[in-house]
Design a protein around this nucleic acid. Structure first.
Length: 469
RNA sequence: GUCCCCAUCGUCUAGCCCGGUCCAGGACACCGGCCUUUCACGCCGGCAACAGGGGUUCAAAUCCCCUUGGGGACGCCA
């Protein structure tokens, strides 16, 4: 079978948003699954709106979510000569013509067409005129007037368009640059692309592109149009729906694999399975299981998936993702056993890396700051005894395993007659300053003997200092 | 306005192609309970959907038609 070649063609007029990331993912996953090739192409024929910053932002986002490409990035702005050559071919074979209609004229045509209840389109004024090139003439494609064009879509099935609905669209602007539909087809032909997976919003472009493929006598690629991602108000995703850019999710503390998992699962399914690693996605992805209806972006579910991915990621690997968030908080954390044991205590209670970093702060603070209500309630003279006993027990412990710690606490319970809760909460406040934290034993284990003892001593001093007053 | 697409719990979806095993399954969220030293995790249970109407058929979430609703596209943007 022919090698699958897919592509992702963003236009650099902004950051990479989650919708774009999803179509990139579908193309990439399909190429990887089929052991084919994935090409990155920057569609910057609109020189006005394209920026270098956008290109950089898009590449950065793709790299972060782990999408790599086998070829490119190609820039359409560097291929203008190719498009001109192809436009000339159409001119030569009589399948395209120069048009000198003004923008005002076009405006009027559209208005008139709308008035009689039709679709706004070019009326073919210059079609038979055999005009030659002028300074600002455009080139139009001579589209078939009658018949139908059918899009054989692998996701939606056959879609039939009446050619009479389409018009002689422009393929080259007055300034000599190619328009979108034209550049896409020339590129897909010259780059050997045989599988085009893109957003639903492109179905109406497809018959035009098919006409061009036919005009060039080239075989059609396989088309697949994936339903769009909608905002919570069921309209096209836009800024007012909140965070859109892929890197914004990185900054909020999402794991790239969690975002990937969520985005792919939104519109694609594999039975009842919800959790997928990246490799599993590559292994199981298929075009057949892409759904036909639009999906709504749901933050809650993304959060839940992120929590699952956090739990499933080994601490060492998680550490590398977490470190930037720690440094953001001016904590001097580094890779190593300490951060890994910290992560082990936090993984089950963090939905995002931001949350985890927040929860990890007390591990790095030299001087614990007690929450007022917590200190008032739990750091009282009556807990001096168990606190001191714990200090002693820790002295005699070789290994702070959770088992050993549990035994130590049991011993103290027996000696003081206090219930575990009565001992654990004060210790918790002493170690973290708060009443909410990871489990006592795992936390002491992570903290280590020195830090734990220092904090306990400080709490004892705090209590005696208070009661002296 | 015209054209195109879509339609199962609030949301993501399984089931639909190859009608019966579906008084519709899973997940998120939500609500209970269990576990428990706090918060979580985990476990158990609950709530909750085939848009409406016509056909076809012994039988329809599944096939056909219409209606309604939603989305998208109609640029010398992509």
């Amino acid at each position: 079978m022919e090698k699958i070649i897919t592509r992702f063609p963003p236009s650099p007029t902004g950051y990479l948003h989650v919708g774009g990331a999803r179509t990139a993912l579908f193309n990439w996953l399909y190429a990887r699954h089929m052991k084919g090739k994935f090409i990155l192409r920057i569609e910057d024929t609109d020189i006005e709106r394209s920026t270098r910053e956008s290109v950089d932002a898009i590449l950065e986002a793709l790299e972060w979510i782990g999408i790599d490409w086998d070829e490119g990035p190609y820039f359409q702005s560097q291929r203008f000569d190719v498009y001109k050559k192809y436009a000339q071919k159409l001119l030569d074979s009589g399948q395209a013509y120069y048009c000198t209609c003004s923008r005002e004229q076009l405006e009027n045509m559209r208005k008139k067409a709308m008035e009689v209840g039709g679709k706004p389109k070019y009326d073919g004024t210059c079609r038979g005129k055999e005009l030659s090139k002028t300074d600002d003439s455009v080139i139009r494609f001579k589209a078939p007037l009658v018949g139908t064009t059918v899009v054989e879509d692998v996701i939606k099935g056959n879609i039939v368009f009446q050619n009479s609905e389409l018009d002689d669209f422009i393929i080259q602007r007055g300034d000599g640059t190619p328009t979108y539909n034209f550049a896409v087809v020339v590129d897909d032909i010259t780059m050997g692309i045989n599988t085009v997976i893109r957003g639903d919003d492109h179905v109406n472009n497809t018959p035009k592109q098919i006409m061009l493929f036919k005009a060039f006598g080239c075989p059609l690629p396989t088309f697949g149009h994936v339903p769009m991602v909608l905002g919570c108000d069921r309209t096209r995703l836009s800024k007012r729906h909140g965070a859109m850019s892929v890197t914004a999710y990185r900054d909020m503390g999402f794991l790239p694999d969690a975002l990937i998992n969520y985005l792919v699962r939104l519109g694609w399914s594999y039975g009842d399975q919800e959790f997928f690693s990246k490799d599993e996605l590559i292994e199981k992805f298929s075009l057949e299981n892409i759904g036909r209806s639009a999906g709504i972006f749901n933050m809650e579910k993304l959060l839940a998936l992120n929590a699952d991915h956090i739990k499933a990621t080994p601490p060492g690997k998680l550490a590398r993702h977490l470190l930037p968030f720690l440094r953001e908080r001016n904590l001097n954390a580094e890779e190593g056993p300490y951060i890994e044991s910290i992560i082990e205590t936090l993984a089950t209670r963090s939905k995002t890396l931001q949350e985890m970093a927040e929860g990890a702060m007390f591990y790095f603070q030299e001087e614990i700051e007690y929450e007022e209500t917590a200190a008032k309630k739990f750091l009282t003279p009556s807990v001096l005894e168990p606190l001191n006993l714990l200090l002693m027990e820790l002295n005699s412990l070789e290994h702070l395993s959770e088992k050993n710690l549990e035994n130590a606490f049991i011993k103290i319970m027996e000696q003081t007659g206090l219930k575990l809760g009565k001992i654990a909460q004060p210790v918790r406040v002493a170690l973290t300053g708060k009443t909410v934290s990871p489990g006592i034993f795992e936390m002491i284990h992570a903290l280590g003997k020195k830090r734990t003892q220092a904090r306990l001593k400080r709490a004892v001093e705090f209590i005696t200092g208070q009661s002296d007053l």
